[in-house]
Structures are given as C-alpha cells and as structure tokens.
C-alpha cells in the first residue's frame, strides 16, 4: 500500500513539500476525508427513538446486576477516595412512599430526554442529542463547567474528578469532563442491547425503539400504565417506569 521510499523521507522534506503547495494542503484533506467517510455501517436515524421501560415491580431491592454490568461494559472501575466524587452512570434507588410505607426499587440513569435540559444549558454544545434520541457528551469540546449537572433533574451526570487509565477502548472517559449513561451507544450501534438490560435477569428492563410498532417496548407501553419521572417538567424522557 505505501511507498517504501516515502517512509524514509524525513519530516523536513515533507514539510518542504507542504510549504511548496499550501493550496494542496488546504484542500486535499477534505477531499480525502469525504472518500474515507463513504464507509460501512448505518448512521443514527431520526426515525428511531431509543427508549427503556423499567418495571419496578420486577426489580429486586437487593439486586444491582445492572450496575455491575454497566461498570464492566463502560470501564467504571476506578478507585476514588471520596465516594461522593465517584462516577455513577446507573444507580439503584430504593423508595418508600411517605404516606403508605410501600417500597419500590428501581435503577436510575440518564433519562435520555427529548428536550434535555443538559443540552439546553451546555455553553459549547458538548451535550448533544443524537438523531435517535440518545443524549451524549462530546468530550472533545466539553470544558467541564458542570452546568449540565446543575440542570439535570435526575442527577444523572458525574464529573471526571481524577485522571484515569482504565478506560475501555470504546468508552473514552477522563478527567475534567462530565459523563453519563450512553445507553451503551457502542453496543446499540451494533444492534445489541445496553449492558444493564442484558444483565437484568428479572426481566425488569425492556430496551428498544419507541417509534417502532413491532418493538417489544412499543407494545408494552401501549398495554401497561407507565410514567415518566418528573413528568411535570415535560421533558419527554426516553426512559419510562412502570409500577411506581
């Protein structure tokens, strides 16, 4: 593929060539990149709206399989001295109804709102929503201001308080940026379910396309009564709960 003579050229020679043809330098990468971009793979589509239905009746209060699976898949395994500074993309919340004492247990994570406050408040546009409804952080332009953490009604986001070396290759994480549940976007893009859903042996989590009439989640949401957390804020969350 490559010309062996070229490999021996020094940087000075390369730079001289560049200096000689600034016009080439200015235009060429663009052309090459369009060519390189005509790649395989589907792109996220706005026809799809990914969502998650969680049945708190089936969720056991002493089970945190979803949390462990998330940690393994996304490499959230670092040791953090102050537990309040530890990143948690998904957490189990145990609830007690104040009036009746009835208890519930459920996993809480980024609710992947259709109108996400984090995206509204992000000064640089690092918080963004993909066409298919997955809310992500662009770590390349996140400046770490934490305004999104102030604005999120679900406390779904964590801040990278320390430098990391234990990232999984497909899940970049690091110091100084804000992060949250991605619906395991690296898996979803390949047609897999998020790690938490796959790990839930109680069948309490259904993942799928909220817009697809043939999907399990679509059918289920039509059958049972489910609700969005903090529905009063009208954020149109992608994660729905049943049984609370």
């Amino acid at each position: 593929m490559s010309d062996s003579k070229n490999t021996r050229r020094g940087f000075l020679a390369a730079s001289a060539t560049m200096a000689a043809g600034l016009g080439f330098v200015a235009i060429a990468p663009g052309i090459r990149l369009i060519e390189a971009a005509s790649a395989q793979g589907k792109l996220a589509s706005s026809k799809v709206r990914y969502g998650l239905l969680i049945d708190s009746n089936k969720c056991k209060s002493d089970c945190d399989a979803c949390v462990g699976a998330c940690a393994t898949e996304n490499g959230i395994v670092e040791k953090v001295a102050n537990p309040r500074q530890r990143a948690q993309w998904i957490r189990k919340i145990n609830l007690v109804e104040t009036s009746t004492g009835k208890t519930h247990s459920l996993p809480m994570m980024c609710q992947h709102c259709a109108k996400p406050p984090c995206v509204d408040v992000c000064p640089t546009g690092a918080s963004f929503k993909r066409a298919d409804g997955i809310v992500l952080v662009d770590r390349h332009i996140c400046i770490g201001c934490r305004y999104c953490m102030m604005a999120c009604p679900y406390k779904a986001r964590s801040f990278g308080h320390q430098a990391l070396t234990t990232q999984n290759p497909e899940v970049p994480r690091g110091q100084g940026c804000v992060e949250a549940c991605t619906f395991c976007v690296q898996r979803v893009d390949r047609g897999l379910k998020p790690a938490c859903v796959e790990a839930c042996t109680n069948g309490a989590m259904i993942f799928g396309d909220l817009n697809d009439p043939n999907s399990d989640i679509y059918k289920r949401i039509r059958e049972v009564s489910s609700r969005q957390v903090r529905a009063d804020l009208k954020l149109d969350t992608g994660v729905r709960y049943q049984g609370i």
């Binding site: 408040v121 000064p123 640089t124 546009g125 400046i143 770490g144 201001c145 305004y147």
Partner: peptide, 25 residues
Amino acid sequence: DLGRADRLPVALTHLNPTSEFGLNI
C-alpha cells in the same frame, strides 16, 4: 475552576445560543 480550563478557546469558538453560559460569551 473549569474541568478543562485549557479548552478556553473551545468555549470561545463553540457557542450554544440556548445556554445562558454560552450567551455570556
């Protein structure tokens, strides 16, 4: 205090008009 204070140029060149912080730029 920013997590990535080195990215000040990013804050200056990427502007989200719905953000109060962004408008402050």
